[in-house]
Every structure is written in structure tokens, then in C-alpha cells.
Design a protein around this nucleic acid. Structure first.
Lengths: 336, 336
DNA sequence: CGGTTTCTTGTAACCGGTTACAAGACGGCT
DNA sequence: AGCCGTCTTGTAACCGGTTACAAGAAACCG
């Protein structure tokens, strides 16, 4: 035996110490009403003496309920995910649930393994996987585990879903930029295969066409650095531009910083806009115009739905949330 | 019976289906070598047919090991915690561990309950509680559960600890500001009762005294708004100031924004400095001078230590990490 | 061919709780 | 006193895995 100590007291130890049955100890700890005060006192004393703490794992097994929720995210970089997690945590704490983190690093085989590992560990799953096909993902999972999907691609499993209307949001942003007098509006796209990126790109293209303007799309992958690179590319290729609409705020900020370094005036010469309204968007200078998705709230609602689902209540199959335009300095009217 | 479905297949179902014993099924799933290929094939086929996924909870109970690590944080606001969490997640994934989140909202009674709830759910704990007395916290917990403390107050429990040398960092920052020619250096403090805030405040006061300068301390509580308020207070009270050293970056940024709104030139009239080097510090304009703590790395090392501890290896009792000065535009030499 | 070793497989106890069920204690009633 | 209902308490099965141990089969040996 290692030096790990004598192991912790179990419910049977307490029962022996208090000279009662395990059932009684269980009743005391679960605050069931039908237990004589004198006996209750004896049990509590014994538990204190042995420094007994109930073993949650054993409890979970016998009750077939863990009180935990599995959160499967593609990544943890940036404020987007931390905001989402914050919202989830708030709601979960409110409902006496824990959050079990698991990120699936792009690779689907790994993702499936991650999901299977959750069985018996959590009561339900929140899955945010804008970058992968969910049919593949859920195919290897028993269908009875409750799950709520956040910003995922279409799925045939009929699971409840929360989504942001990215197409409409992107359209609205283009219209705003046009209203500000911009014409040469360039879009920096998100990573390939990401459904949110694709939707925003589509909204952009549609709105540009509707306005009779020529769409110009540069590649990106949602991080600051790719926003920077896009601007460098614009300069190198001498592309005419009076507005940049990035598919998310981090890229917009990268673009902003790059433009600042190049001495280009924002919004004087070029307007910049993003998407998500991460906390940073308000703090950066100039303030970043963006489409507000209440990220934390979305996470919270996801948890909310999932808990309802776990408790067997009916939940709406799908909710499409409309993002709202937040106008800040970075898209002020151009001198006209 | 509710409409929850017929429940999932268990190891016994698979055993029956494949006409073998549960032990054999277990051996197949745990990849033990001593099982005849033909039998292995039969088990795998049965498992596929029943869509069997092992129940992690049951496994954990019988092996007395969960593969999960409990992370107890005081809050989830702001980039500091999300960076820390990101670092932890990275390291945990590397070591095939899950993270179970739990934040203790300031209240110690609640905190104790949160810790107790972790027994049987996790193999060990990472505790970051700069704002509460750990003796109280751990007194109600069996001492045998492994735990690593991050930036905590002194504790008599002799648990491994990781800490940032906040006093030295604050001193270094004051010296830097003095070197830049600043004399009227005001400190915006963190919340009362927070050990990190107290240490930074102490470092500030010591360094000011050493430089023969008069310390001036304003209250704050680590959020942006309190940085803003401190600046308003400075203006209202007509306090003479040519540098503001906030106890963390978020307050420094609040101060920066407030000064910007007031038309005060940074760093021309007033230098601003923070502490932590959150990602935002680099992006804001002017760039924020700050003390760099590699937050994500610290989280990762915490996990690393904890895993070693769980595995019964020896780990150093305490590590004091030195933060590094990052000079950005917000503290450029004043015109002299 | 019998004895020993090695490999495969199954039986049943165990992890630490919960809980259905039964039995005993007690009080109130006729 | 006898009967019944209510309240308290204990016994033992169960949740779904792992694993010590034993037994049977196969291989190897002299």
C-alpha cells in the first residue's frame, strides 16, 4: 500500500460508528424527513468524527444521474468561447449543475471518442461544432443521451438547436456599410468548412449583389493574425477598398491594428466591421462596429434548454436568434 | 416508465449477446492481451449491434479513479480566467484528463460545499482562491485529496503551490515609471481581502517609499468600471498625477478609456500601467505597459503538478514565478 | 502417457452509494 | 385488550463496471 493514507470513510463506516444502518445514514444526508432527531444527531456526530464526505461518483451511479453537463467546444481561444463558457457556467450554477469541459480539436475521430467518453459522466451534452458534420458525430452514440446543439450544421437527428441568423446579420452589416457611403466593401472570410463562416460569407455576397456591388472575398480563419494578413494582402495587391467586413471581431481587430500600423485612417479612409460583439470590440480604439450576438446569453439558454430536456420537458426544436447591429466609430460616415 | 427510451446497453447485455462472460467483454474493451481473436471479434460485433458505450461512471467507481480534475475558480469574468482555463485545458487534454468547472462565488460556505461536492467526482483539485482563507476551506475536507493551489494565501496544509511574485512585480513597475521620469504615481488597488491585490499594493508602497515618493492609493476591484471611477475621482479631487499604476490590466484599461474620454493624453500627460498582460493589453491603443504573467502557462503547470501529485510523484512544495516587465506605448518617457 | 506450465475464460465479490420492502415500535381507537 | 394506521429503522438488492481467483483447455515435456 502506498502512502496515500487510509482511504476515506464510507457510508458503512459512518453507519458502524453511529450504530445504525446505512439506509439511515443515507436518509440523514439526503435530508429525508422520516428520521428521529436523536438518531440524526448521532449520525451527524459520527460523520463529523470520521470526516465523512459522500462519494458523488457512487451516488451518481446508483441514481443514474450525475448533475454534470458535458460541454464540447472546438477550441478555447479568444473571447468568444470564454464568453460562451461564462454564460453556461452562470446558468449551470443556478441549476446546481457542473460543467465538464471537452474540446474536440478539429479531428472528427477524436471528437467521436470524446463524446463516447462522456457516457456515464454527464447527464447531457452541449455541442458546439460549426466545423463538422453532426450525423457522423452522433452516429456512434446511443441516441438516448440528451443534447443541445449550438451553431451547428444541419442534422438529421432532430435534436434541439440554437442558432444565430448569420446570413441575415451579414446582410444587415453590408447594408449598413452601404448606407455609410461605402462601395468597395471587402469581406474577410472565416475558415473553410465552418458553417458560421459560410453563412456570413453568403449573407455578404447576397447583399453585395443586391446593392449592385462587386463582392471581394479574402481568406481568413477567425484569428487576429489572419485579419492582419488580409490587410497586407489588400495592400500588396493594390486592391481598392473603403470598407472591410470581417467574419468575426478578432479578424476585424487584426485588420484594425494592421491599418493603424500602416497609417491608414479608420474610419476616414477605410471603415472596419466585425461580427460577434466580443467585449474587446467596445474597448479598442476606434470602437468596432459589429453584429451583436449575446454570446453569454446564448450559452446560458443552451444550458437552460438542455436541463429542460434532461428533466423530460418539451423544448422547441430550433431557435434562430437575430443579431443586432452595433454602430461604433470604426464605421462612421465617410466624408461625402 | 417515462419516455426516456429503453435505457442503454450494459456490459452484461453485450456478454449475453456474444455468449461470453462480462469479464471477457471488459477485457476486450480494455485491450487486455489475453483474449482469443475469435472471441474478441464476437464481442466487438455484439457491442456494435447493441450500440454499446461503456459507462464511465461505473468504471470510475470500481477503479477509484475518474480521470477528471476539479477546477475551482472565484469567477469567470474577464480574460484572466479564460486564459488560465485555456492553459489548463490544453495540458489536461494532453494528459487525457477532463476538467470539471466549479466557481465559488466569494461566499466561503458555498465554497466549502462546492469542494465537498467534488469528492468522488474528480481525482484532484486546482484551487485558485486569492480572496479566502484556505485553512477554513480545507478544514472540512478529508486531507487525502490531492490539490494544487494557485495564487492563494498562506496555508498550513502544506499543499503544493504556484504563485506569482506580486510584490516584486509591483516594485519593478514603480521603478520603471520612476525611470520614465514620473513622480506623482497613483496606485489603483484591487479588492480588499484579495491576497494578490494586497501584495501588489505592498510592492507599490515599498517602492514608492524607497524612491522617496508619496504613495497615493485609490480603491478598485479589478474590473474596468472601477478603473474608470478611479480616474473620475482623481479629477474630482484635483489630485496631481503623472502616472497611474493599476493592480490589474482591466482597471488600467478602464483608466485608459476614461482618460481618453477626458481628452488627457496618454502617455504625454499621464502614463498608465497594469498587471497581468492579458491579450487585450497588446491590442488596445495606446499599448498597455504591464507586468507579464504567463497566465495560460501557469494554468498548464498547475495541471501538470496536480497530475504528478495524483500519480504519487514528488512535486515541489512551492514555486514563485517572477513576472516580466512589458513596456508599451502607455508608459513612454514623458517629455523631459 | 501423466505431469507441469501457460493461456483463456468464467464466477462472484467489490467499489459506495440508493431504495424497495419488510418488520418493529408506537399511539389512538373501539 | 385487540386492532389498525403511521412512523422509524434495517436488510439486501441494485446501479455498471473491474478484477482476484479458480477452473478448464491446450501445449509442452520427459
Amino acid at each position: 500500500m502506498t502512502g496515500k493514507g487510509i482511504g476515506q470513510a464510507t457510508i458503512r463506516d459512518v453507519a458502524r460508528e453511529a450504530d445504525v444502518s446505512v439506509a439511515s445514514v443515507s436518509r440523514v444526508f439526503n435530508r429525508l424527513p422520516n428520521v428521529r432527531p436523536e438518531l440524526k444527531e448521532r449520525v451527524e456526530q459520527a460523520a463529523r468524527k470520521l470526516n465523512y464526505v459522500p462519494h458523488a461518483g457512487a451516488r451518481n451511479l446508483s441514481m443514474a444521474r450525475t448533475g454534470a453537463i458535458g460541454v464540447v467546444l472546438p477550441d478555447l481561444h479568444g473571447e468568444f468561447f470564454s464568453e460562451m463558457l461564462r454564460g453556461m457556467e452562470r446558468e449551470a450554477a443556478l441549476r446546481q449543475r457542473h460543467l465538464l469541459l471537452s474540446n474536440m480539436h478539429l479531428d472528427i475521430g477524436h471528437g467521436i471518442e470524446a463524446l463516447r467518453n462522456m457516457r456515464g459522466r454527464v447527464d447531457g451534452l452541449i455541442v458546439m461544432a460549426p466545423h463538422m458534420n453532426l450525423d457522423d458525430l452522433f452516429a456512434h452514440l446511443p441516441p438516448s443521451i440528451p443534447a443541445v446543439l449550438l451553431n451547428c450544421q444541419d442534422n438529421g437527428q432532430g435534436r434541439p438547436e440554437l442558432r444565430v441568423d448569420n446570413v441575415a446579420g451579414a446582410r444587415a452589416m453590408v447594408r449598413h456599410l452601404v448606407d455609410c457611403g461605402r462601395r468597395a466593401i471587402v469581406h474577410i472570410e472565416g475558415p473553410a468548412g465552418n458553417i458560421e463562416a459560410a453563412d456570413r460569407s453568403r449573407g455578404y455576397a447576397e447583399a453585395m449583389e443586391a446593392a449592385g456591388l462587386q463582392p471581394v472575398i479574402l481568406p481568413g480563419n477567425f484569428d487576429e493574425e489572419s485579419g492582419r494578413r488580409a490587410v497586407a494582402r489588400l495592400q500588396a495587391d493594390q486592391i481598392d477598398v473603403d470598407a472591410i467586413f470581417a467574419a468575426n471581431d478578432m479578424m476585424a481587430i487584426g485588420a484594425l491594428v494592421a491599418l493603424r500600423d500602416m497609417g491608414v485612417d479608420v474610419p476616414g479612409q477605410v471603415a472596419v466591421a466585425g461580427f460577434d460583439n466580443i467585449p474587446l470590440a467596445r474597448l479598442i480604439s476606434p470602437g468596432l462596429t459589429t453584429m451583436a450576438v449575446d454570446i453569454a446569453d446564448m450559452g446560458a439558454r443552451g444550458i437552460n434548454r438542455l436541463v429542460a430536456l434532461i428533466d423530460g420537458e418539451a423544448v422547441p426544436q430550433m431557435e434562430l436568434r437575430q443579431p443586432g447591429l452595433i454602430i461604433r466609430t470604426s464605421s462612421q460616415l465617410s466624408a461625402a
